[in-house]
Amino acid sequence: MIKSFIYPIKELIKGLLTVLKNGFKEKVTLEYPEKKKILNNNFRGKIKYDKTKCIKCKICQRVCPAKGTIEINETFKINYSQCIFCANCVEFCPKGALKITKEYELATNNKNELIFNEGIN
């Protein structure tokens, strides 16, 4: 009878001590807008386009899983509101005209600002 009372209390105290122990651990969070995370070079963010290297082969358009995100006609057009940041286009670009950057803060009030348009040489 006494044992059935003591056991739960013992376990509860054990749990509380674990919580207490965690209070003295070092901080794991970042104060985000002020401090930013250091990103690796592999990080897949916004895509940078180099018009001097582009040969208009349209492979980026062909490998893109989100259809209609990249359009090449007179201009190189990429719509970041549809992009899923898989970087397939960067990987398969034969001339290296596309590069990934570490830019990821793309939130905006205007949807049109997410459409990137640049003329091709």
């Binding site: 490998v63 899983p65 397939n88």
Partner: peptide, 10 residues
């Protein structure tokens, strides 16, 4: 409607 490569990230 997607090629094998296009479906990969999805």
């Amino acid at each position: 409607t997607r090629t094998y490569l296009q479906y990969l990230p999805i």
